[in-house]
């Protein structure tokens, strides 16, 4: 689904040339849940922008779905740490925003408004927000806003979901709740996910593969498969094997931070 061939990205910063990403290669299969972890400032967000085609690599090649990325890829949904819902739209209208933009839907939305409405309400139902569809974002808690943001990134049924630390601003309990929500959505809809995070437990619980990045210039220094069977219950977090995984990832990151 996603392939990065020896990608380098540098840009002119205030203090001269900055290399955000150097000679990075990465492959994510179709339907795979991939997590990218690493110390802060290691170019994880740059990686997201490269894959979605918002920026072009300085060197190397980015492929998504078998074709080289030359502009914004239109099969992706994105969610970030801030939910970024539009305060003048109700939750339902926020979730339906991508339908007003993405190509096949924007033309049909006028005629098939009811069908799309049902679809959005169903999706909101999956994350437990059906009763809040007519509320406004500012009437909801941070966790609920983030659920709505997830729905917005999935409403157009993207094949690729890009998540940039989507749960980082939430408290521990809400975060675990949303892990489960994301797990269930992914198992139901089967899209490909790239999750950028610095929460190692989050990566271990959700992902099939975890890619560890080094500090700037970013590079993938290790790729690890997570073998826990699916569907994973939250209890897996307390499995000794899980603790070992997190521990060794932690050591690896400490190591690359030193370097």
């Amino acid at each position: 689904m996603i392939r990065l061939h020896d990608v380098t990205l540098s840009y002119r910063g205030r203090a001269g040339e900055v290399t955000a990403l150097a000679h990075t290669s990465l492959a994510v299969g179709k339907g795979e849940f991939a997590a990218v972890v690493g110390p802060s400032g290691c170019g994880k967000s740059t990686l997201m922008k490269l894959v979605t085609g918002l920026i072009r690599p300085t060197k190397g090649k980015v492929e998504v779905d078998g074709a080289e990325v030359t502009g914004p890829v239109k099969i992706a949904g994105m969610a970030f740490q801030a939910a970024n819902l539009l305060p003048w739209r109700s939750v339902l209208d926020n979730v339906m925003l991508p339908l007003e933009i993405v190509a096949p839907h924007r033309g049909r939305l006028g005629r098939e408004r009811d069908a799309y409405r049902t679809r959005a309400l169903d999706l909101l139902g999956v994350v437990g927000l059906r009763d809040f569809a007519d509320r406004y974002p500012w009437e909801m808690s941070g966790g609920m806003q983030q659920r709505a943001s997830l729905c917005r990134s999935l409403i157009h049924e993207p094949e690729l979901l890009m998540l940039d630390e989507p749960f980082a601003a939430l408290d521990a309990f809400t975060r675990e709740e949303l892990w489960v929500v994301l797990r269930d959505l992914w198992q139901r809809l089967g899209f490909t996910v790239v999750l950028v995070t610095h929460d190692l437990r989050e990566a271990g619980f959700l992902a099939d593969t975890i890619h560890v990045m080094s500090a700037r210039p970013g590079q993938i220094v290790e790729t690890r498969r997570v073998a826990f069977p699916r569907p994973r219950p939250l209890d897996v977090l307390y499995d000794p094997a899980f603790t070992d995984l997190v521990h060794s990832l932690r050591n690896k990151i400490a190591e690359v931070r030193q370097a």
Binding site: K49, T52, G53, L54, P72, V73, K74, A76, G77, M78, A79, F80, A82, N84, L86, L97, P98, I101, V102, A103, R152, S153, H156, M162
Partner: peptide
């Protein structure tokens, strides 16, 4: 917000 712009641009807006 630049993130919001990214979300929409990635959709082809």
């Amino acid at each position: 917000e630049p993130e919001l712009e990214d979300v929409l641009r990635a959709l082809g807006a």
